[in-house]
């Protein structure tokens, strides 16, 4: 039974591939008329023709119910590529799903033309085709969502990288200006960046400037102390500076202690201390010639 019907669908698709494609393209162009900035008609035609060919040959296999079966592998991977590229181009999930759903109208009208005399047969084929296309449409949404998630993850990682820049202040002195709230994920990346820069630049002193950190509670202090301890184990001294007056007050109220760590009020004080440590002196020129 299933075999007979599936052959009917495959047969109709094979015989009328070109007109179905043209009608489908018209449907899509209407649906996507507002998004012509994102995809050209030529690309759309290529994508549609490729998918329709794969779809037809998958239908010919006789299996029109299970799209996870090997016969559907090529169609699904093609569809996956389309969804992924649309996700990165900035199409919405429904615009992406439209790619498949807009095939319904031209496909169904062709079925009606071919099977018009056989009401029972037509109803059955319509049902089969609807179920199949719905499955494929949902599949595009799933892939689209996954692709978006990947984009978000990538952006998050990039932001983390950008938010922890290590700068070289002088030969042997590097600085890490911290801005924003510190959580464990960020501090881990920061710590790795700072320690790696210490190795790369051969710096003896690392200055961590916390002017841009809104609050310093016991947890944040713990992160900073770990960073100082790890730098010391590698043979570098870590100075913490940029402790604003309110921060100093809350630290005392919370009982946060930095122990033996050198702390300075401003970056300038820290730099002066660092210069002394590496044996540099800064002096003003007394006269200009």
């Amino acid at each position: 039974m299933t075999i007979a019907t599936s052959h009917r669908i495959a047969d109709i698709l094979t015989r009328h591939e070109q007109p179905i494609l043209e009608a489908w393209l018209r449907e899509q162009l209407v649906a996507l008329s507002a998004r012509q900035d994102l995809i050209s008609e030529a690309d759309l035609r290529r994508q549609s023709a490729e998918f329709l060919a794969l779809f037809t040959s998958a239908c010919r296999s006789g299996n029109i119910t299970d799209i996870t079966a090997p016969e559907w592998k090529q169609s699904c991977s093609n569809l996956g590529n389309v969804s992924r590229s649309r996700a990165t181009q900035g199409f919405s999930p429904s615009e992406t799903a439209t790619f498949v759903f807009s095939l319904k109208q031209p496909f169904f009208s062709r079925l009606r033309q071919e099977l018009g005399g056989d009401a029972a047969g037509l109803a059955e084929e319509m049902w089969n085709a609807t179920v199949l296309l719905d499955k494929l449409g949902l599949y595009t949404t799933e892939v689209h969502q996954k692709a978006r998630e990947e984009v978000i993850k990538l952006q998050q990682a990039e932001m983390l990288e950008l938010s922890t820049p290590v700068v070289k202040l002088w030969d042997g002195i590097i600085a890490l200006p911290l801005i924003g709230t510190l959580d464990s994920g960020r501090t881990n990346i920061m710590m790795e960046n700072l320690l790696q820069s210490i190795v790369d630049t051969g710096s003896d002193i690392a200055i961590v400037d916390i002017t841009g950190v809104p609050t310093v509670d016991t947890l944040v202090a713990q992160y900073l102390l770990k960073m100082v301890a790890a730098a010391r184990l590698m043979g570098a001294e870590c100075i913490i500076c940029g402790i604003r007056p309110q921060i100093a007050q809350t630290m005392v109220h919370l009982g946060v202690e930095f122990g033996n760590v050198v702390t300075k009020a401003s970056l300038a004080d820290a730099l002066a201390y660092a210069f002394r440590q590496i044996g540099c002196t800064v002096s003003k020129q007394t006269s200009r010639s």
Binding site: E192, G202, S203, A230, L233, M234, G235
Partner: peptide, 28 residues
């Protein structure tokens, strides 16, 4: 000492305060 090793030692809870350290053989 490698950065990853230093981070791990600190997380492990060892301070090794009695050990003097330097970045490389030259500085040591």
């Amino acid at each position: 000492m490698q950065p990853a090793v230093a981070i791990t030692i600190v997380e492990l809870g060892m301070a090794l305060t009695e050990v003097r350290t330097a970045l490389n053989v030259d500085k040591g």
